[in-house]
Amino acid sequence: MWYYEKKLQYPVRVRECNPTLAKYLIEQYGGADGELSAALRYLNQRYSIPDKVVGLLNDIGTEEFAHLEMIATMIYKLTKDATPEQLKEAGLGDHYVAHDHALFYHDAAGNPWTATYIQGKGDPIADIYEDIAAEEKARATYQWIINMSDDPELNDSLKFLREREIVHSQRFREAAQMLIDEKDKKRFF
């Protein structure tokens, strides 16, 4: 089970109301390579992966929920004071008519989140390689969002999240090597 802790993993501050920036950030909320996809992908893969790497999937999967909460906080803070007119100007008019100021799991272009973004293949190497790719794609997305953002306070939090993707990718690469070594040990001639 999980306990909730009443704190963010890393502080989230924004300079001002900025729904345009929020629209881009939604990519990391309900997009293909976003934090929801990451959390659900890793936690679901735990059940069929060898014991040696279950802990890593469990702990990174849990951290992804903390990242999802940071992204949600960014979107919330960037949009909470926006008028319908400002949301419309930012390209969030379609979002507003369906959700008002509520958050929803879709990507920056409005496509709803789908389980087809993630895989649980049951093959340990296939699953871990997918996880490495997912981290690299998420890292790239954070970079593209930072490139679009002119809010230095928000960028500080985004840079933290970008660095986490790098660490996760490196940990998953170690896990891949552990799985390969384990497989080789079982090979008899």
Binding site: L8, Q9, Y10, P11, L56, D59, R171, M178
Partner: peptide, 24 residues
């Protein structure tokens, strides 16, 4: 509230990082 929370966030980050490292 903010200064104490940041201290907690800092030490908990060390713990999370060590946890992931120790997993492998």
């Amino acid at each position: 509230y903010y200064s104490l929370l940041e201290k907690i966030q800092a030490v908990d980050f060390v713990l999370l990082e060590l946890n992931l490292y120790l997993d492998t």
